[in-house]
Design a binder for these strands. Structure first.
Length: 400
DNA sequence: GCGAATGATTTGAA
DNA sequence: TTCAAATCATTCGC
């Protein structure tokens, strides 16, 4: 180390000081405390200064500051500064880093775009509402969704707040650090040549470092949004059983259309409306119901009986109303309006239809006891006999 | 905690 | 596109 210093000092002592010859004694007044007029005295003087510079790091801070101040005030300082300028020009340090303009990072662009799309980095109001609305639509309608919707937005706002707070902190730290470095460079520019380009380059380096930290923040924020979104959008996670009433409505339809349990689009819409669910949920329900019923008819027998009885009551009420109005419209069977779509289902369910018929008769008998109406009247509903004709026989009403 | 029930999704056929 | 069938993921009742 000391050898190297000595070598540099030796080399420098012989260099031309920006057009002033050290040896020649032109223009440079003698330093303080060294009144010698000969070349050796000046050489010694420069040697001392350089030695002071080289050993400055070995000293304490106060000592160094004092030395630094001494050097700054030294009358040889301009000459030394010129030397440094010359050296720098020769080594071409100032040229380096001229082509520093990086193209925008594609990953950063992706992150920025995503944060903007999710309403994290965009304008404050309505941020992410489109995403939340889409998620709500995917999960199905209803008041529950508006709760989930607001829940999603609240969580997104939370993420947004954290993101902005952290971003602000990073920016503040970046600015503080940049200011600090620039002050240092300005300070140093008094003792060594620093071009504005160099300062610019240094600022660029600092900004790049901080932007890489920012990218990590953006990445984490994106991950948080993705998790939130997936949790919100994944309907399976949020599955709720339909209300008892909705299930009853769907079951009633299913068992009253057992020979062809394929509701039309209109019927699906109607059911969806009644059950406060979506049409696709109705489709899902019927899909599940058909397959599960077909797979285990025995298991659903009780349920089938129950709904058959229910249908009977409904039909009875209809007939009673018909009697009341003295109308002669023949009621139709519940299944009459449907065509068989699925032969397999038809075959498989034939067995169940037979047993269902037996159960229906049982239900009719029970009903006739409970609602004090002739069994045949109720039966007529099920076996598609003209009610009025049947009634005319059993309750002595004139047939139309 | 476990098994059944149930709503949703995926896959493949028509 | 719709449906059956298989499967997944969650809820519910014990």
């Amino acid at each position: 180390m000391m050898e190297e210093q000595a070598r540099i000092m030796q080399a420098l002592s012989g260099v031309t000081l920006a057009g002033h010859s050290v040896q020649g004694g032109m223009g440079l007044p003698p330093p303080h405390g060294h009144e010698g007029t000969d070349g050796d005295g000046r050489k010694q003087d420069i040697g001392d200064i350089l030695h002071q510079i080289m050993t400055i790091t070995d000293q304490s801070l106060d000592e160094a500051q004092a030395k630094k101040h001494g050097l700054n005030c030294h009358r040889m300082k301009p000459a030394l500064f010129s030397v440094l300028c010359e050296i720098k020009e020769k080594t071409g340090l100032s040229i380096r880093g001229a082509q520093e303009q990086d193209p925008p990072d594609p990953q950063l662009m992706r992150l920025d775009n995503m944060l903007l799309a999710e309403g994290v980095s965009g304008p404050e109001k309505g941020g992410g509402s489109a995403a939340a609305a889409a998620a709500a639509a995917a999960a199905g309608g209803g008041a529950e969704n508006s709760i989930e919707h607001s829940d999603y937005r609240a969580k997104l706002t939370q993420i947004r707040q954290i993101y902005h707070t952290e971003l602000e902190k990073y920016e503040q730290a970046c600015n503080e650090f940049t200011t600090h470095v620039m002050n240092l460079l300005r300070e140093q520019s008094r003792t060594r040549p620093i071009s504005p380009k160099e300062i610019e380059r240094m600022v660029g380096i600092i900004h790049r470092k901080f932007s890489s930290i920012q990218m990590q923040l953006k990445q984490s924020t994106c991950e948080a949004v993705m998790i939130l979104r997936s949790r919100f959008l994944d309907a399976r996670r949020k599955r709720r059983n339909f209300s008892k009433q909705a299930t009853e409505i769907l079951n009633e339809y299913f068992y009253s259309h057992l020979s062809n349990p394929y509701p039309s689009e209109e019927a699906k819409e109607e059911l969806a409306k009644k059950c406060s669910i979506t049409v696709s949920q109705v489709s899902n329900w019927f899909g599940n119901k058909r397959i599960r019923y077909k797979k285990n008819i025995g298991k659903f027998q009780e349920e089938a009986n129950l709904y058959a009885a229910k249908t009977a009551v409904t039909a009875t009420h209809a007939v009673a109303a018909a009697i009341h109005n003295s109308q002669a419209n023949s009621p139709t069977t519940p299944n009459s309006g449907f065509q068989m779509k699925d032969e397999e289902f038809q075959l498989d369910s034939a067995e169940s239809k037979n047993s269902l018929l037996t159960n229906m008769f049982t239900a009719v008998l029970i009903l006739s006891v409970f609602i004090s109406l002739p069994s045949v009247l109720i039966l007529s509903v099920f076996i598609s006999l003209p009610s009025v004709l049947t009634l005319s026989v059993f309750i002595s009403l004139p047939s139309v």
